[in-house]
Structures are given as structure tokens and as C-alpha cells.
Write a protein that binds this DNA or RNA. Structure first.
Lengths: 111, 111
DNA sequence: CAGTATCCCCCTAGATACTG
DNA sequence: CAGTATCTAGGGGGATACTG
């Protein structure tokens, strides 16, 4: 980000604008949906997979790792057998709620 | 959309959830940025290209056509030489303002 | 000015199999 | 259960050249 207090009007996006930055965080094919479901509360890997639907294990893992790296999702591993892993939103991830939820509402209101 | 009045909590995304639908509209690599700039007002093709920055003509055209098809952007052609084409948000496109702008803000507040 | 028309690379994402 | 490993195709997107 070049200037954090810059106004949006006449914003020069030539090399990286805020929207571009945001889409890098949630632009992955499944990330929006994953975040959406984590907003319902903490979820285990399997639960998440079931809810997201057609996502493959590989992709779910990959996107979750990226979300984790970006600090939007936290991963909690329980050292038990069988494995137990819980995913939840970080505070930073929570800040996306006003973005994700209007997305959902917007999509519903304009079919 | 399966049920337009369904609550978001416990929403079953198995085959297409609202967030997924929304991301299909604005998920293109440049669409968010294009919409962002059109929110500043009507723009000509060249102006848009300059503002979006590194986008190629081909991609800008392609994404604009998709946005047009999805009913988010309207294209107005003036029958003059040299050509003059103006792009602007449709009412439907305007409904994305509360989604796009928080994106920008969110990206700025959480670097 | 505002586009098409080609060509082509690469990365995303899917399918499948295996494992601590 | 919650992952890795490997292989592969498909198409999204880039570069470049041409045009009404």
C-alpha cells in the first residue's frame, strides 16, 4: 500500500490498488466460501469439506494454508489419534465479515 | 440460488452458495479494480486502461464484456471518428459499492 | 481510439493414490 | 481424520500485430 490515508477518489491503481490487494486475499476459488462458513463458527477440516461441497481435499488444504499465511484463519491442532484440527477466523479474518456477508446478500438480491 | 429467503447460518453451500455466486461476478483478475474505478464515475476505454495500469487491451476488453453480460456495466458507443466509448455502472453494478468499497478499506486497514 | 486476431505459456485446480 | 505426493488438462491471461 503506497499511502494508507489516500482518498479513494482519483486513486492511482497503476501498481497495486486496495481492491487488488483485497482480491489477492479472498480471490482464490474457494476462499470466499471457506471464510463464509468459518463465520458460522469454528469448524473441523471434515466439517468444512462437507459444507464447501465439491472442493477436493488438496484444494481445501491449500487454500486454508494460504488463508493461514495471510493471517485470516487460525489452525489449531490437537495431538490425538485420530487427528483433530480446528479452523477459526482470526481477528483479522473477522474484519472481512462486512465484506463477505454483503457479498452474500448482494448475490441474493440481484439474481 | 436455491432459496432466496434462506438464513445464512447453517446455509448449505454444497452446490452454489451466495458468496460463490458473487465471486463469479467479481472474481476475474481485473474486475474488482475495474468496478472500483467505475465507481468514480463514467470512464472511457482509454481512461480505464490508464487507471487500471498493467492490464492489457485484450484483457480489459474481455473483462468489460463479461461485466456487461452480467449486467454490472453498461457500454455506450458514440458513432464518431475517432471512436468514443463510455463505460458506466448499471444500477445492479451500483449495488456492489457496499462490497467493493469495504474491500478497499479493509485492505488499507489491515496491511 | 477502441478494439480483434493469433499464438502460447503457465498456473490453478482436478483426479487419484498413499500415509502418520 | 487430516492430510501429502504426483500427474495432468484446461483455460485464464500475457505479448504482439493488425484494423474499422
Amino acid at each position: 500500500m503506497t499511502d494508507k490515508n489516500q482518498r479513494f477518489e482519483n486513486y492511482d491503481c497503476s501498481q497495486g490498488c486496495p481492491v487488488e490487494a483485497a482480491l489477492e486475499l479472498i480471490g482464490g476459488k474457494w476462499k470466499g466460501v471457506i471464510l463464509f462458513h468459518l463465520m458460522e463458527g469454528t469448524q473441523r477440516f471434515g466439517e468444512l469439506k462437507k459444507q464447501v461441497g465439491t472442493v477436493t481435499q488438496r484444494m481445501l488444504t491449500k487454500q486454508l494454508r494460504e488463508l493461514e499465511t495471510d493471517g485470516l484463519v487460525s489452525r489449531k491442532v490437537f495431538a490425538v489419534v485420530p487427528p483433530h484440527v480446528e479452523y477459526s477466523l482470526t481477528p483479522k479474518g473477522e474484519t472481512l465479515r462486512p465484506i463477505i456477508m454483503p457479498c452474500a446478500i448482494g448475490a441474493q438480491n440481484t439474481p
